[in-house]
Design a protein around this nucleic acid. Structure first.
Length: 172
DNA sequence: GGAACGATCTGC
DNA sequence: CAGATCGTTCCC
């Protein structure tokens, strides 16, 4: 679980789009709210793969949501990226979203803004090649001293766990 | 083969 | 605040 707040402040990069991760949620196998709770299936198998890969699922049949696999092979652990602060590629994000506000302040929104879909499920976020594909970078942004911690959003089980973390507004 | 349920978003 | 909308899972 402590790998989740570690992602705060890191950069999500894909094509011309760059965003600073500002909100994350942790999910793991012994967690009724997690997709990995019932074990591996064809659609969630990436969650059971090695760390540092991207797990993308479809929410409500419409939206894509992106996770960083963090637990290592077999553990079914992931961190949902719920929001990023747009850093670069705003025009592309506006074009993909069809609006100029609320570009990346939700898990489905940020995937649409970045062009992330199921096609990118399983991508290696730490690959050091320069070819196309989503990547995760550390640009030296100071880790938050006191990340905001709260309950996870939109779930019906495991509601009591404080496994949602956000960058404080002052870090903007 | 069918039904129920979403780690959501948008517009009213 | 309710409706949209359909992939995935589970049960028969």
């Amino acid at each position: 679980m402590e790998t989740a707040p570690w992602l705060l402040g890191k950069l999500l990069v894909f094509g011309s789009c760059v965003g600073r991760i500002s909100e994350v949620e942790a999910y793991h196998q012994d967690d009724p709210a997690s997709h990995s709770f019932r074990g591996p299936t064809p659609s969630n198998q990436t969650m059971f793969g090695p760390s540092g890969h991207l797990y993308v699922y479809i929410s409500y049949g419409i939206h894509h949501c992106a996770n960083v696999v963090t637990g290592g092979a077999g553990t079914g652990t992931g961190v949902l990226m719920r929001a990023v602060w747009p850093v670069r590629g705003i025009e592309t994000m506006v074009s993909r979203r069809g609006r100029s506000r609320g570009l990346t302040d939700g898990p489905g929104k940020l995937c649409q803004a970045f062009g992330i879909t199921r096609i990118h499920d399983g991508a290696n976020l730490c690959a050091d090649s320069t070819d196309v594909g989503p990547r995760l970078y550390d640009d030296g942004f100071p880790p938050p001293v006191q990340p905001i911690r709260s309950r996870r959003i939109g779930i019906s089980k495991g509601v009591d766990k404080l496994w949602r973390w956000q960058l404080p507004p002052k870090d903007r």
